[in-house]
Design a protein around this nucleic acid. Sequence first.
DNA 1: TGAATTTGACGTTCGGCGCAACAAATGTCT
DNA 2: AGACATTTGTTGCGCCGAACGTCAAATTCA
Lengths: 390, 390
Amino acid sequence: MSEQTAEGVRQRNLSRILRLVHLEGPLSRAALTESTGLNRSTIADLVAHLVRGGLVQELAPDRSRRVGRPSPVVAVDPRVLVISVNPEVDALTIAAVGLDRGIPIRERIDLEHLITPEETAALVAERIAAWRAGALADRRIVAVGLAVPGLVRAADGLVRNAPHLDWIDAPIRDLVAAATGLPTTVGNDASLGAIAEHLYGAARGIDNVVYLNGGASGIGGGLIVHGMPVGGAGGYAGEFGQNRPGIASDRDRRANSGVLEAEVSRARLLAVVARPSADEPTLAALLAATTLPDAIAELARQRGILATALANAVNVLNPSVVVLGGFLATIAERDLEGLTAAVGAHAMPASMEGLDIRVAVLAEDRLLIGAAEAAFADTLSDPQGSTAAQ
Amino acid sequence: MSEQTAEGVRQRNLSRILRLVHLEGPLSRAALTESTGLNRSTIADLVAHLVRGGLVQELAPDRSRRVGRPSPVVAVDPRVLVISVNPEVDALTIAAVGLDRGIPIRERIDLEHLITPEETAALVAERIAAWRAGALADRRIVAVGLAVPGLVRAADGLVRNAPHLDWIDAPIRDLVAAATGLPTTVGNDASLGAIAEHLYGAARGIDNVVYLNGGASGIGGGLIVHGMPVGGAGGYAGEFGQNRPGIASDRDRRANSGVLEAEVSRARLLAVVARPSADEPTLAALLAATTLPDAIAELARQRGILATALANAVNVLNPSVVVLGGFLATIAERDLEGLTAAVGAHAMPASMEGLDIRVAVLAEDRLLIGAAEAAFADTLSDPQGSTAAQ
DNA sequence: TGAATTTGACGTTCGGCGCAACAAATGTCT
DNA sequence: AGACATTTGTTGCGCCGAACGTCAAATTCA
């Protein structure tokens, strides 16, 4: 029952320091003292505590031609890892991600057929065992994080429905946790992408973010409010793809439903450039260079509908930054001013004042980083508890 | 620089206790011990601290036929007040609201012409002075809270635009603070209504809430995410009225813009019952009883469009509860199952599982309570600081 | 009336941070 | 090159605030 003071303050301060060096990179003890407002002696004690727990290292001071006694640099221990997993239709990506955001090892396993939850768990466990015996022999794997293209119930990591994987009510968290013996977190891929862009990408440090990602399977997204990811009651928040935005002219409507991801879709973009399929950079390059009137018109049509959907979100959430990823980035980049103006035409002027619509900057690592961040969450918020459990 | 421990823990615990008795009503010291997890002796000390600060009182134990020594009841000191102000087109409501949520005095001042920000400040100061000399002689007024029908910039309480009051960039917070000498908070009326419904109304204790209110001036709203009100970057969040929801059939469209509050509006409801104007209960009664086919059809039309707008919000935010106030409650109540089903038809099934669409329960006091809550915020989060400033 | 139960009151203990004095390491000035 | 200024690590001490244990008080129940 000593949660209010003894452990409470200690845990809080340990967490703050670990988060700082995790998010900002290596920092001198003097810098930690300044940015936490804690006393020098307290910082020394807390850092020593984290060092004993194997979470951070103290390195030789930086040669920085500053006057005064040099301050040791505190850096995260790169040997602390989580395993990030991203099952997709045609492949499963699995990687080890360090507390320093390094990715010492990564594999993309091509799949002949749709992978089942059980196969996923077995495959993850098998890879971890192999890595532990090899490349990651001296590392410490503390958790597993999965980014799943589907609805994930936050309470128990149950995949309610991942249509492209054909997973329905798959207890993937428990399966992976049982197979690996590691604490496991599961999240929606787009929501984890939003977290990654918030922490390290286009929306770094921004407290109010709307993130939309366009993928082959549709449009997903995530929100950051109060500087925290928004899950909602069940963890299903951020599903912009199923929204129905107003469509000004019937000529712009293609689908009966009026659902955003039926109107604004990768398939329709592929169609206008007459390609059966293409990977994301290829499609982006094609569309950026095209002079086909039909393609330009289709981009403009989709941009217009996207603008209304974004304006709706801006009116409700008043974010500082809207981040667009996947093919939505391609649609936006061709005319970012036009998109911003179109959003402004439908959103309230006051909400537009502080708004910046940006393109995502994290590349293919985005989901791995997002999943890793979710997996690290426990360690970051309770460094000593997670150390003891080691 | 002692914010992490000494004052920090103390302040936090004082705040928790004050919030508990403020939100839940009088509680015995034993109940506080249980629900905070703090030690009996610590609770005794903290309560004594709050008593010295004049924020709570200790009352005689409740006769509750429970075995054991009776525990003193801790209740908020009802003499601690804030002044709530709600300027509207035709009247200004001003009231004193206690920390116990009592409203010892309230006045509605009818206005011949639109009131200016300066007149508002003067009127508030004049009323406070009069009350201090009279009915509130032995009370302690700690702050002023305003609920304004318009966009309010959170940073400085500037009213950016309140179209119905004809206020543009009105520094109302500073005007009232200067006129009264009291700390002053300003908020959007619908956002404050959302807070009130969250703390004491239809969404009591719910962490993820979408609130929409239909008023004469349009549709406003507010969000609760992570159990906290959402302001967004500038404080303008919650403006559902300006959204453009998808409208399935062109026959259902009435306005060119497709803006929600142009389609779903009080004026259109008044029109179908052939009334030039009516207050809220009158309109609600008329519509609840009507058998006019045109009125029933118009209710259904507005209900359908509202459903799409709500479904969009549900997909993005995955709330546990949607609360509807004002004439939106009237639209909903006539067929709540139908509305819920219509939202379900456009929202993801998973997000519908935990969803409850409800009608607001707080009556005309809603805005006064919401504004009071905002005004009390400082005292609640830092009881000793606010005591010292007394 | 007495036993059981619950809680308040009080003195003590302990965890955790701030503080001050001193030592160490570096840049700067003459 | 050497003295000085500056910054920061180190160490011991003190204080704040909450927990704990013991005893007393107040109530219910048998």
